[in-house]
């Protein structure tokens, strides 16, 4: 009997070429990272169970899930608003453990959908990140409109995406994107294209520390 091994693959394994691209040679204007090894579960409150869902989430994560387009960071996960009475729980991949814990917590009060492989997570930062994003994202990302912790379910190049702003790094905004896995090769090309004129630093990181 042959040996079966189960290596994972990134949907960006062709599109993502690690390194410095585009204009200039110094520090890149845009830093783009694929975040690998993620766990992602969509949590949708059942009819009449929004309050119970929030309570259960509080118990599990230590924070209430957002009730408006926001992202809340807890110790073990980030909870991202994804629609009325539903949110995405985003965490480092841990086999089946994360989903199992949620299934246990939300049994009977919320429906879950495992999206750990359904979405590709990206991280966009750098001094020109917002200029690059203005080319493919119709959201107003101005500090007063989209501050740290803001989130949105939006459309990028006609496909759904979740966007949220996490804590600034080195005084600069950091935007996080979740895009459908099957679109990620296409969207990566578009995002990279948008960033080339500012200089692009492309790479990947693992969500698992």
């Amino acid at each position: 009997m042959p040996d079966f091994t189960w290596e994972t693959q990134s949907p960006l394994r062709k599109a993502l070429v690690v390194g410095r691209h585009g204009a200039g040679t110094g520090a890149a204007g845009v830093t783009l990272r694929e975040v690998r090894d993620i766990a992602l579960v969509q949590v949708m409150a059942r009819r009449g169970q929004a309050a119970a869902t929030a309570k259960a989430a509080k118990k599990l994560f230590g924070v209430e899930p957002p009730t408006s387009p926001k992202a809340v960071t807890a110790k073990t996960a980030t909870l991202i608003w994804s629609g009325a009475d539903q949110f995405l729980a985003f965490a480092p991949h841990s086999g089946d453990e994360f989903y199992a814990k949620l299934a246990d917590t939300f049994a009977g009060i919320a429906s879950l959908s495992d999206q750990s492989d359904g979405r590709c997570a990206l991280h966009i930062s750098g001094p020109r990140a917002r200029d690059a994003m203005a080319k493919f994202c119709a959201l107003d990302l101005h500090d007063t409109v989209f501050p740290v912790g803001a989130a949105a379910s939006t459309a990028i190049d006609h496909t759904n995406a979740s966007v949220w702003r996490s804590a600034d790094e080195a005084g600069e905004a950091v935007y996080n994107l979740l895009v459908f896995t099957s679109f990620s090769d296409s969207l990566w090309h578009m995002i990279a294209d948008a960033a080339l004129e500012y200089g692009l630093d492309a790479g990947h990181v693992s969500a698992v520390q």
Partner: peptide
């Protein structure tokens, strides 16, 4: 009513 103002192309 949930997301706030959005570009009409999302609808």
């Amino acid at each position: 009513p949930f997301c706030g103002e959005r570009d009409s192309s999302e609808f």
